[in-house]
Simulated scan of single mutants.
Amino acid sequence: MLRSMYSGISGMKGFQTKLDTIGNNIANVNTYGFKKGRVTFQDMMSQTMSGAQGPTVGAGGDNVRGGLNPSQVGLGSQVGSIDTIHTQGNRQTTNRPLDLSLEGDGMFILAEGGTEEIDPEVQTINLQNVNTSFTRAGNFYLDSDGAIVNNEGKYLVGQPEGEESAGIITIPDTAQSFSIQTDGSVNYVDENGDPQMAGQVRLANFSNPSGLEKIGGNSFQYTENAGAAIEGLDDLLVAGQDGTGQMVSGALEMSNVDLAESFTEMITAQRGFQANTRIITTSDEILQELVNLKR
């Protein structure tokens, strides 16, 4: 069978994966905090017809024949990587105090676990025992206890006021109003009209955010290739410090998907897929001609 037929099959598989990735990007064009994916290709192994040779040296030490380059036939392409691009998305103003966006690096930390990991009295968290995830989607809410959670009920991790460990930030039911500052400080006005501080939202920052693994729900989970693990309060960062971006209340970070770029990539992927199908049909016509030689 012709090698070109199998090369065309490998090319079709690769462009199909690229179209799947582009389709996912377009589907999440309005997903808060979504980070787009990118597919890269690499060539597969090549069949060597003849190896390289150096110049032939005669008896007198002079070259009597020049060297030869290798002759190789490629056997197609394959997916090299599927990257997650962590560039900044556009900011959309909502004027809702619990909508938070980050201008720069950093990610919100979410935690979920049982009462043995999260103390219901002081709302402290042992980050080594709970399930933590990370997100750029800043649409948060208050539960019945006044704790800040995301739309799945996962707690937003920070440092409660007066505590020396990571925990849940809670706003009392008697608070007249509250606000979140650019450094993540959560302030509220109590029933007497006096300003109080509930705590400070903390962030995580990774040396290689592309090493995080998507788990759905606009969230990522930690992998060893992302950088140092988040194990305690000392690993949590204040917004605007240590390389993290500032926190903006009343706004949300939108997806970083560019529709114009996505449609352009979709057209090129479609044409690449079609070109590889033509390789298969052309190879089939050649094989048919060979079969017809018997007639």
Rank of each mutant, 00 (worst) to 15 (best):
N30Q: 12
I279T: 10
D62T: 14
N25V: 12
I180N: 02
T124R: 07
A59E: 15
S144K: 15
T282F: 01
T21L: 11
T124F: 03
Q72K: 07
I215H: 02
S219W: 00
T84S: 12
N90G: 14
Q270W: 06
G89S: 09
E231W: 04
M1I: 12
Q47P: 00
L100T: 05
M5D: 02
M44V: 07
L100M: 14
G67W: 05
A27Y: 11
T40P: 01
V186I: 09
G76D: 02
M266S: 04
G138D: 09
Q288V: 01
Y32W: 12
V248W: 00
T281A: 07
G240P: 03
P195L: 03
Q47D: 08
M44A: 06
P97A: 12
L203H: 07
S262D: 09
L252G: 02
T132K: 14
S210I: 07
K13F: 10
Y141K: 10
M5P: 04
G37A: 11
Q88F: 04
T93P: 00
R295F: 09
E213M: 10
V238F: 00
K13N: 09
R271Y: 11
G11A: 08
S207M: 12
I280E: 04
S81I: 04
G37I: 04
L237F: 00
G272T: 06
P160H: 01
G76C: 01
A229E: 12
T135W: 09
T94N: 05
G243K: 03
N256M: 08
Q181H: 02
G114L: 12
G23N: 09
T48F: 00
I230F: 08
I215D: 07
E103W: 01
I109W: 01
N192W: 00
G37S: 14
I85E: 15
G199D: 07
I279P: 01
R96K: 14
I85V: 13
E161Q: 14
E285V: 06
G89A: 09
G33D: 10
V238T: 10
I171G: 06
T244M: 02
E213R: 13
G104K: 04
M44E: 03
G80Q: 10
R278N: 06
F178T: 07
N24F: 11
S255Q: 05
D119M: 04
D83T: 02
K294E: 08
K18F: 04
I125K: 03
G184Y: 02
L203G: 09
Q221S: 14
G11L: 02
F34K: 08
D145W: 03
D145Q: 14
R38L: 15
R3Y: 13
E213I: 11
F273W: 08
A175T: 01
N28F: 06
G58E: 05
E253I: 05
G272K: 10
I267Y: 03
G158F: 05
S262Q: 15
G74Y: 00
V189N: 00
K36R: 15
L98I: 08
E261A: 13
T268F: 13
T17P: 00
I109F: 05
A229P: 03
G61K: 08
M254R: 03
D194P: 00
G104V: 10
N276S: 05
E117C: 09
T132A: 15
D234H: 08
G216S: 09
G232L: 06
D235N: 08
G167L: 07
G146A: 10
P120H: 06
H86A: 14
D183H: 01
I22Q: 08
G114K: 12
E231T: 11
I26W: 06
L142P: 01
